[in-house]
């Protein structure tokens, strides 16, 4: 589903006592198109599927985390709702396996969490949805998630911002107007 990515020019800002050497701003088009496919998702206005609320696992995410535990290895993938697998880390990769004693013990889970967190930060994916309630509190997966959070990944995605119309009761804050 293609969301439109138009940005309409609101104002052309002028410095108050600006000298006369201004090149003409007439050559700026009124409509600006940012082609970055991840931009609207980062601004929280991109399309996010809702799915049915009774679906398990739900479909309400931009990026989510999936963990596949096989007989010998652990593989963690970051999935996008449209593009499928976009990032992965596994203990079967030589770069991880080389420094591990076993590829499926608790230490492997902890170290895989660190590796995946590092890769997510490198790829600019800092918010990833994951159903934490489905995980046992003191298990290996909980340790994996803890390492991921320590690396700086939020395991919850913000809600999609829906536009407000004049007849709406409230005016929620626009995410892009909040200054850090």
């Amino acid at each position: 589903m293609q969301a439109r990515n138009y940005f309409r020019v609101m104002t052309i800002c002028n410095l108050r006592n600006f000298s006369s050497g201004v090149s003409s701003t007439a050559n700026i088009s009124n409509i600006f198109i940012n082609r970055n496919p991840r931009n609207l998702e980062k601004l929280r206005i991109g399309y996010k599927p809702d799915g049915y609320h009774v679906d398990k696992p739900g479909k309400n995410y931009w990026h989510n985390l999936k963990l596949n535990i096989s007989n010998q290895y652990i593989t963690a993938t970051i999935n996008h709702f449209e593009n499928g697998v976009v990032l992965k880390a596994s203990t079967s990769e030589w770069c991880v396996k080389k420094q591990l004693y076993k590829t499926k013990d608790t230490s492997a889970f902890i170290n895989l969490g660190r590796v995946l967190g590092y890769r997510c930060l490198q790829a600019g994916l800092t918010e990833i949805s994951f159903d934490k309630d489905s995980v046992k509190q003191n298990g290996k997966v909980a340790l994996f998630l803890k390492e991921l959070e320590e690396a700086g990944i939020h395991l919850k995605e913000p809600r999609q911002y829906k536009p407000t119309y004049p007849w709406d009761q409230h005016r929620p804050e626009k995410p892009w107007e909040v200054t850090e």
């Binding site: 439109r4 138009y6 940005f7 309409r8 020019v9 609101m10 104002t11 052309i12 800002c13 002028n14 050497g21 201004v22 090149s23 701003t25 700026i28 409509i31 600006f32 601004l43 206005i45 536009p163 892009w176």
Partner: peptide, 12 residues
């Protein structure tokens, strides 16, 4: 040496 353009997302 130009004026700063400011844009806002154009919701349908």
């Amino acid at each position: 040496n130009m004026k700063e353009p400011i844009y806002e997302y154009d919701f349908p």
